[in-house]
């Protein structure tokens, strides 16, 4: 009897959960579907959900008219570039703080985090002027530098929480066996640190890909990543829903897939280890 009730309850909960899940996902699904419509079909009333003439012309059109893949490659360049440079700077720092903590390590970590709290508008004016004078406005290098700096505290923090979990005993054992610093890093630490570094990499690519303050303010045409490119659809000419949808689908698909893989790391990375 009890079993019967629990099965019914299970189905009930399942139906509600799926309904809410689909509702949350619907704007993305709708964008995806619309990207295969003609512009006329995209604004048809009543809207058609599945039964229309599916077409790929929007994808072709977006690339032909606005050189979509240049913006795509700008996004790749900026997000991967800033993340990789950030990792190169952050890995030694996090390693040292996790395994050679000094008296002030904790304060140092908190201070690094506090740089992340500074609102971007607080430094928009000087950064804009400095970039203008250095000729870095609308350049991929400039955006990469900025994103490296704003990501650095998160990268250090994430790496730190991962490195912290590597048992120190192992390092001591290696040291006893006479392993030098470099051997220690290469043969003992690296294999244990790789998963943490990989998760950090993943999360930061996602964050950098979607960053939409500095990219919008410091890029216009040449170096515009997808965030800026998509924003140009805010003042469109003529019918554009289907093309907006096609451009959006291509902009979010790769990161959505990466994001789905990084669920667990996301929680930990974004809460600075406070929730695991």
């Amino acid at each position: 009897m009890a079993r019967h009730v629990s099965t019914r309850r299970r189905w009930f909960v399942t139906v509600i959960a799926w309904a809410i899940g689909l509702l949350m996902f619907f704007p993305i699904l709708w964008t995806f579907i619309t990207s295969f419509k003609t512009e006329g079909e995209a604004v048809a009333s009543p809207p058609s959900f599945l039964f229309f003439q599916w077409t790929l012309e929007n994808y072709v059109e977006v690339q032909r008219r606005s050189d979509y893949f240049r913006h795509f490659s700008n996004s790749v360049f900026i997000s991967f570039g800033s993340t990789l440079i950030g990792l190169v700077i952050a890995v030694p720092a996090a390693w040292a703080m996790a395994f050679q903590p000094g008296k002030h390590t904790k304060d140092l970590l908190m201070w690094m985090l506090s740089t992340k709290m500074m609102p971007a508008v607080g430094v928009l004016v000087p950064i804009y002027l400095i970039f203008r004078d250095l000729g870095l406005l609308d350049s991929r290098v400039g955006l990469t530098v900025i994103l490296t700096l704003i990501d650095l505290p998160i990268i250090i923090w994430m790496l730190y929480t991962y490195f912290k979990e590597i048992p120190v005993d192992i390092l001591e054992a290696a040291r006893m066996d006479g392993a030098g610093l470099w051997n220690e890093i290469l043969y003992v630490l690296t294999p244990m640190a790789v998963p943490g570094i990989a998760s950090t990499l993943l999360l930061n690519i996602i964050l950098a890909w979607n960053e939409a303050f500095w990219t919008l303010n410091l890029s216009a045409a040449k170096a515009a990543p997808l965030t800026t490119f998509i924003a140009s659809y805010s003042s469109p000419e003529g019918l554009f829903y289907a093309k907006l949808s096609a451009a959006s689908t291509m902009a979010i698909a790769p990161i959505l897939i990466l994001g789905w893989f990084s669920q667990k790391q996301l929680v930990r990375g974004l809460t600075f280890g406070a929730v695991k």
């Binding site: 949350m24 996902f25 704007p27 993305i28 709708w30 964008t31 996602i206 890909w209 979607n210 939409a212 919008l216 997808l226 965030t227 800026t228 998509i230 924003a231 659809y233 805010s234 907006l244 949808s245 959006s248 902009a251 979010i252 990161i255 959505l256 990466l258 994001g259 789905w260 669920q263 996301l266």
Partner: peptide
């Protein structure tokens, strides 16, 4: 969780 990964400009325009 999908909406979290959508870039803000896409979210807003859609």
């Amino acid at each position: 969780i999908a909406p979290f990964f959508v870039m803000p400009t896409v979210t807003a325009l859609v």
